[in-house]
Computed example of a mutant assay.
Amino acid sequence: EAARLSQSTVQMAADLGSFNNVPTADVADRISAAFRGEYDSLQSLIPNINAARVEQEAMAATGKTNARELTAQEKAAAVLAIVNKDGAAAMGDYAKTADGAANTQKTLTASLEDQQSKLGQTLMPLWQDFLGFLTD
């Protein structure tokens, strides 16, 4: 369930980023900040998100009547519900515009970064062995 939720959140970030021409990682950081109760950066994409609305959404979803009773997990679920609801126009935008220049560049950049990471992980043990050899 956690993996599915994580993938859904990344897809949501990609769609919002595509729709608003903002890098996916930047949107993911904004959503992550909202999970911690920091809504300012996400408000440029989801203007009506704030602490009061998140608490109201969480209380409606959980049936709790006092915001102090809400857990961080319940508030995070409320953030996702608000982003999904208010960002509905953006959902699916990355797939719809994947062939466009901006999203093609995002996809290629992400692929390149992934390949660089894999290459670095492969070469790191060899580099450490080489440094060990030089030290000896």
Rank of each mutant, 00 (worst) to 15 (best):
A2C: 10
A3F: 09
S6H: 08
S8L: 02
S8R: 01
T9H: 10
Q11G: 01
A13K: 02
A13C: 06
A14K: 03
D15A: 04
D15H: 01
L16F: 04
S18C: 06
N20Q: 09
T24V: 12
T24D: 02
A25Q: 09
D26S: 11
A28C: 05
A28P: 02
A28I: 10
A28R: 03
D29V: 13
R30V: 06
R30I: 04
I31E: 14
I31G: 07
S32H: 15
A33R: 04
A34F: 05
A34Y: 05
F35I: 11
R36H: 09
D40A: 09
D40E: 08
D40P: 01
S41E: 10
S41M: 04
L42E: 15
Q43R: 10
L45C: 09
I46D: 03
I46R: 03
P47G: 14
I49T: 13
A52I: 13
Q56F: 12
Q56D: 07
E57M: 15
M59L: 08
M59P: 06
A61L: 08
T62A: 09
G63Y: 04
G63L: 14
T65I: 02
N66M: 03
N66S: 14
A67N: 05
A67T: 07
E69N: 12
E69G: 08
L70P: 00
A72F: 06
Q73R: 12
Q73Y: 10
E74Q: 15
E74D: 14
E74K: 05
K75S: 12
A77E: 15
A77D: 14
A78D: 07
A78L: 12
V79E: 14
V79H: 13
L80E: 11
A81Y: 06
A81R: 15
I82S: 13
I82H: 08
V83T: 03
N84I: 00
N84D: 14
N84M: 04
K85L: 01
D86S: 07
D86F: 04
G87P: 07
A88K: 01
A90M: 00
M91Y: 00
G92L: 00
G92M: 01
D93H: 08
A95D: 11
A95G: 03
K96Y: 00
T97E: 01
D99N: 10
D99T: 12
G100N: 06
A101R: 05
A102L: 10
N103D: 13
K106N: 05
K106G: 00
T107V: 04
L108P: 00
L108C: 03
T109P: 02
T109C: 07
T109A: 11
S111F: 10
L112E: 03
E113T: 08
E113P: 01
Q116E: 14
Q116D: 15
Q116G: 10
S117I: 03
L119A: 14
G120L: 10
T122S: 12
L123D: 07
M124A: 15
P125R: 15
P125T: 05
L126W: 07
L126V: 11
W127Q: 13
F130W: 14
F133D: 15
